[in-house]
Structure formats: structure tokens, C-alpha cells
């Protein structure tokens, strides 16, 4: 039995050769002989000590989201036609439009939901991944909080997509005025979905693994 001298880790299930099912939460004994397909005796879910392949899955989603963030901001998200005059707006030009027209509240909401939150999420996730891969012991509690915050606020970025969807459906006044969705919305939605998947595939327990003295057994 390899018990860490560190008081924090004395009671971890992994140290006692146990793990729990990620789906139903049942505590299960780990098989002594490494096996590839281990299932929960209660619900049949796949058992693993950490989310499988967490680091490369999260990186893949984060990198893809970073790439899609560029066309999401450069391509128009709405094409407004008013009396035959059509105007294409990107996310930022929409924010500036609302600011100029005096709607500071709406401008602020769109700016936070569509620009601040996605950038913050991408930065936080990349930072967490770097720190986990370097087995950093730096401020684990703050990093765990940061992860939970990222996971919680992620879905709110979808707000912009919903705003466009509702506008497209509502403003259909024929020749007078119409609003159409621009190609940027698709890429923006892809960014939001990919960052949400990235937050899901990231295993926050990897933050704590670096604190364990004997962590060879954790890399399952």
C-alpha cells in the first residue's frame, strides 16, 4: 500500500485502490491486473480513474475553438436590410452600434457574453492545461475555482446566437426590413460548443494529482 505522507492525500480512494463510477457514483474496487474494459457492476458505465485522454481531448477542442474564433469575429453575424439598404454586422460592430445608439446595457451584455467570456474561457482552459501538464503545485484551490467558473459561464456565450436567431425570426417585414444570419454565427456557435466540450472533457482532479507524492498510479 502506497500511502502518501501528505495529510491531504491519506484518504483518497485512488490511494486505497478504489475508484468511483463517473455515471452513478458507485465506489468500486480497482482490479489488480490492468484491464482495458472495466464496467460498473451497478449501471454498466465504463470505469476509469480519470476522464480518459482528458488532456489531449481538451487541447483538441481548445485549439479548434481558437481557430474558429477568428472567422467568428471577422465574418458578419447579422445582415440587416432596411428599406433596400443592407448592412452586415460583425459581433464587434454590433456592440459599437448599440453603444452609439445609447443602449449601453445591451452593448455591455453582448460584449461580455460574446467577447469577454469566450476569450476568458479559452485563456483559462489553456492555462489550466499548461499547469496540469507541468504538474504545477501553484494555487490549486484558485485553479479549481477558476475551472468551476469556466464550466458555469460557458453556456451564456450562446446568448448571442439566440439573439440572432430571435431577430431573424421576428424581423421579417418584407421589403421594409429583414434581418438574416451571417456566416459568422456558425463559427461563433462552434466556438461556444467546443469550449463547453473542452470544459467537460477536462478533469479537474488532474489539478490535485500533482500534489500527490506518489502519483504514478494515477495516470490511468
Amino acid at each position: 500500500m502506497t500511502l502518501s505522507s501528505d495529510g491531504l492525500n491519506k484518504g483518497t480512494a485512488a490511494a486505497h485502490g478504489l475508484y468511483n463510477c463517473h455515471i452513478c457514483g458507485l465506489l468500486v474496487r480497482r482490479p489488480k491486473i490492468p484491464a482495458s474494459h472495466v464496467h460498473c457492476p451497478r449501471c454498466g458505465g465504463r470505469l476509469h480513474l480519470r476522464k480518459p485522454n482528458s488532456i489531449s481531448r481538451t487541447w483538441a477542442c481548445v485549439i479548434a475553438a481558437m481557430i474558429f474564433y477568428i472567422p467568428a469575429n471577422l465574418l458578419p453575424v447579422t445582415v440587416t436590410t432596411y428599406l433596400g439598404r443592407s448592412q452586415a454586422d460583425t459581433i464587434m460592430s454590433g456592440v459599437i452600434y448599440f453603444m452609439k445608439s445609447g443602449s449601453w446595457g445591451i452593448a455591455g451584455i453582448i460584449f461580455v457574453a460574446s467577447i469577454v467570456v469566450p476569450i476568458a474561457k479559452l485563456m483559462v482552459l489553456s492555462g489550466l492545461m499548461f499547469s496540469v501538464q507541468r504538474r504545477s503545485r501553484w494555487r490549486p484551490l484558485e485553479r479549481a475555482h477558476l475551472y468551476r467558473l469556466t464550466e458555469t459561464i460557458g453556456r451564456w456565450s450562446m446568448l448571442d446566437v439566440f439573439v440572432v436567431t430571435v431577430l431573424v425570426a421576428l424581423v421579417r417585414l418584407g421589403y421594409l426590413s429583414t434581418i438574416e444570419a451571417g456566416p459568422g454565427v456558425v463559427y461563433f456557435a462552434a466556438v461556444v460548443v467546443l469550449t463547453m466540450i473542452a470544459a467537460m472533457t477536462f478533469d479537474p482532479r488532474l489539478i490535485w494529482d500533482a500534489l500527490e507524492k506518489n502519483d504514478e498510479s494515477i495516470t490511468d
Binding site: S56, R57, C61, I67, F68, I70, P71, A190
Partner: peptide
């Protein structure tokens, strides 16, 4: 890992744009 297809597709789409 097959997940790396996601950024690969992103690169292809971004490059094409």
C-alpha cells in the same frame, strides 16, 4: 487520438476561408 480531427477540421475550414 481521433479527437485531433476536430482542430484539423478547424484548420482546414479556417484556411479555406
Amino acid at each position: 487520438s481521433i479527437v485531433w480531427l476536430i482542430p484539423l477540421i478547424a484548420v482546414l475550414v479556417g484556411g479555406w476561408l
